[in-house]
């Protein structure tokens, strides 16, 4: 794995082994350093362990061994709600909003971890970023369309001003137009200084917007390098098929 040209790390993972059962690891010794402000795509075939890696970092899957640091803080083993307070936001792939709560309540729920004086200001900032949500704040979130749900999930994650934001397949189930809008939004968020990690199946769309990429296969990193050019790299298909032996820089 190459960590060259990576500035001060926002997230550092070393030798991470994780999974749902102790004797059946899905993530099998991942090393990863994500620089502050980086926009990273995590790619790989189905079953490669992308979502499990993201969930392990977010505190939702047991870490069997390895180290995990957010900035300078050791976060391995911290419960998920503590990680949110530490500045790590995670947006799950499906069921990423509370359908029975209103849009306002979805945002308030996350804002409750902030000091009382900042909650209103952060919620209004979220509405300013996503005006569609602001116009419907009292309706149940379950009534939103797929794209609007993804916006709400993103807005909810942003409320706590995370230093690192991980999204698990935000394009799933969305039309190409909406995927473009969602990725544009993520680019804007990244430009504001948030480190964004995008777990994606939609390889071309992800590589078009991210600046760096990591390819996982069978729970291991098989490639780490710039996103530019990777989509047309003939080795990418080999990586997805698990036939690629080396690691491209």
């Amino acid at each position: 794995m190459s960590a060259a040209a990576v500035p001060s790390p926002a997230l550092a993972v070393a030798g991470l082994v994780a999974g749902y059962e102790r004797d059946l690891p899905i993530v099998k010794g991942v090393d990863l350093v994500v620089g502050a402000g980086e926009f990273l795509a995590i790619l790989g075939p189905n079953g490669a362990g992308k979502s499990t890696l993201a969930k392990a970092i977010a505190g939702l899957v047991s870490i069997h061994s390895g180290e995990l640091a957010l900035g300078t803080r050791d976060i391995a083993g911290l419960p998920a709600h503590e990680l949110v307070r530490s500045g790590l936001a995670f947006v799950p792939q499906t069921e990423n909003i509370f359908a029975t709560l209103t849009i306002q309540e979805n945002l308030q729920l996350c804002a409750d971890v902030l000091p009382a004086a900042r909650r209103g200001e952060r919620i209004e900032a979220a509405y300013a970023m996503f005006p569609d949500l602001g116009a419907r704040r009292t309706i149940a979130a379950g009534a939103l369309s797929g794209g609007q749900r993804q916006m709400l999930a993103t807005a909810r994650a942003l409320l706590v001003e995370p230093s690192v934001m991980i999204l698990d397949e935000p394009s799933a189930g969305l039309s190409p137009k909406l995927v473009g809008e969602v990725f544009e939004t993520l680019l804007r968020i990244n430009e504001q200084g948030v480190t964004v990690i995008l777990v994606e199946q939609n390889v071309r769309a992800a590589l078009a917007v991210t600046r760096s990429a990591l390819v996982l296969c069978d729970g291991r990193v098989v490639h780490r390098g710039p996103a530019a050019g990777l989509a047309d790299d003939p080795r990418l298909g080999e990586m997805f098929l698990g036939r690629y032996e080396g690691q491209a820089a």
């Binding site: 998920a80 709600h81 949110v84 069921e95 709560l101 409750d112 706590v160």
Partner: peptide, 10 residues
């Protein structure tokens, strides 16, 4: 509604 999502919502 969703205990896992609640955890990542803080």
């Amino acid at each position: 509604e969703n205990p896992v999502l609640a955890r990542v919502a803080g």
